[in-house]
């Protein structure tokens, strides 16, 4: 029974087609699966459905069809759940694209990537040399004085009348 269940991974195909196509290799197991139809407990169909072989799924289907012919008020909650699950449960084409919990996973992965890139950025910065000697305020102010001495850009730039810009100063 269990071996039969594990023997093949099932794909959801229309039942009629499946019954026809799978009949050929397992003529012997066909009779055994029809006897096992009553053995499959409907209370646990939701957990087992994905692992069932197509013969067993067909058996459950037929079993449920027979059950649903009865008065629905007499059905147990397990039978109702099984009928609903087999028809509209989240398997086959209705399986959720993202399994539950994947939102948290994706958020965690995104933050991990951002953190890693930050680490790489600072790591590479650590490997680099110190900034050049011209990138100091003193040096740049001295450059400004030199520029005024030489009357660089007298019309609109640093040596012009009433100039209020910073000149060469860019370091703090």
């Amino acid at each position: 029974m269990q071996a039969l269940r594990l023997a093949r991974t099932t794909r959801v195909t229309p039942l009629r087609v499946r019954a026809l196509t799978t009949a050929a290799p397992s003529v012997a197991s066909g009779s055994s699966s029809s006897t096992s139809a009553s053995v499959i407990p409907l209370s646990n169909v939701e957990a087992q459905w994905e692992k069932m072989s197509s013969e067993e799924q067909l058996a459950v289907h037929q079993q449920l069809e027979a059950i649903q012919k009865k008065d629905w008020k007499e059905l147990s909650i397990d039978e109702k759940k099984a009928a609903y699950y087999v028809a509209f449960g989240p398997h086959g084409p209705r399986a959720p694209i993202n399994p539950p919990g994947s939102g948290v996973k994706i958020a965690f992965g995104t933050f991990a990537l951002i953190a890693t890139s930050g680490l790489i950025y600072y790591g590479v910065r650590q490997l680099g040399g110190p900034p050049p000697k011209t990138m100091t305020r003193e040096w740049q102010e001295a450059s400004n004085e030199r520029a005024k001495e030489q009357k660089i850009n007298p019309i609109s730039g640093i040596s012009s009348e009433g100039y209020s810009g910073k000149g060469f100063v860019q370091s703090k």
Binding site: K69, W72, L75, K80, Y84, A87, F88
Partner: peptide, 15 residues
């Protein structure tokens, strides 16, 4: 749904 004996469809109507 009752006439064609399909309980799941009846549940699905409410969904």
């Amino acid at each position: 749904a009752r006439r064609v004996d399909d309980y799941a469809t009846a549940v699905r109507i409410f969904e």
